[in-house]
């Protein structure tokens, strides 16, 4: 063995260290894609948010953010995102735990994962209309007057895709819980409460919060569902942006839309920074 080791060391190509590393080439398509479809549009939004309608630079679009309707749209966005992501995260986490504690190769688990994958993508006009026809004012199942209530009525509709999304993103973390940890806790005389309070809870907390933040961002950008649900009040920021682009009665102002989008970018940056910080913590024990 010692001779083999010696051969290995002697055989190491001396010039290898001088060859320029080419591993980065593989990332070029991704980086180019991100630059064209993420960085460039973001840059354009920021640039245009400071442009006036008749050319030139202005802060008018930014100061328009501090008006009643826009403030209430940002408040509405935050309400809807917090409510739908908290409810979605809690119910989705419980469901994920139930799925994880079942047979890992069982039919139920496969059904849940496949079903969640489909339902997490269901949204827009079809989803809003499905709820309208089922529990709307003239619904087939019940005539729910609270259906058009903001934020609770629309939060219920958002939960329809938030809960399955939570199952999908949280399940890997729950699967990471080892049965031996529970056994160890019990061997040391710990109760179920102790296990959740001191072992599983702290381990899952970063993944849970990270997944909840992802749900938050998901709800923030949704437009078609809420627009089809309700048309008269701009409850959330994407609706205000829509209005600034399509108004045909003389109220359209594309650059004000850019300023609104800039406001959303700020919210997303804050949320995603939190997400990445938490992901860093979650990754430490998952390794």
């Amino acid at each position: 063995m010692s001779s083999a080791t010696a051969t290995d060391v002697g055989a190491r190509p001396v010039r290898a260290g001088r060859r320029p590393p080419l591993a980065w080439v593989g990332t070029v398509p991704f980086l180019a894609y991100a630059a064209v479809f993420l960085l460039l549009p973001t840059g354009l939004v920021i640039w245009n948010a400071f442009k006036g309608n008749s050319g030139g630079w202005t802060f008018a679009n930014i100061s328009a953010l501090n008006t009643g309707p826009v403030r209430s749209a940002f408040t509405g966005s935050l309400q809807l995102c917090v409510i739908s992501s908290v409810i979605g995260a809690i119910l989705g986490a419980i469901l994920a735990y139930a799925v994880a504690s079942g047979d890992p190769d069982g039919l139920i688990r496969r059904l849940y994962i496949a079903g969640s994958g489909v339902l997490a993508q269901f949204g827009g006009v079809t989803l809003a209309f499905a709820f309208l026809a089922t529990i709307g004012p003239a619904g087939l199942l019940l005539h729910a007057s609270w259906y058009l209530n903001f934020p609770w009525g629309i939060s219920l509709i958002y939960c329809y895709f938030q809960i399955p999304l939570m199952v999908l993103v949280f399940l890997p973390a729950v699967d990471g819980l080892k049965i031996q940890w529970r056994e160890a806790a019990e061997n040391l005389g710990g109760s179920t409460w102790h296990y959740w309070r001191y072992v599983a809870g702290p381990l899952l907390a970063p993944a849970f919060t990270g997944a909840a933040l992802l749900l938050f961002a998901n709800a923030l950008s949704a437009f078609a569902t809420i627009e089809a649900w309700e048309d008269q009040v701009n409850y959330v920021v994407p609706q205000s942006i829509g209005g600034s682009l399509i108004s045909e009665v003389g109220l359209a102002n594309v650059h004000e839309g850019d300023a609104l989008a800039l406001g959303m970018i700020v919210v997303v940056v804050i949320v995603m920074t939190g997400y990445f910080l938490l992901q860093g913590r979650a990754a430490r024990w998952q390794r």
Binding site: A138, Q232, G242, G243, I246, S247, E248, V249, L251
Partner: peptide, 11 residues
């Protein structure tokens, strides 16, 4: 709950 408009009047 029966009376509706065709769109949002600000748009």
């Amino acid at each position: 709950n029966d009376v509706a408009l065709n769109g949002n009047p600000t748009q």
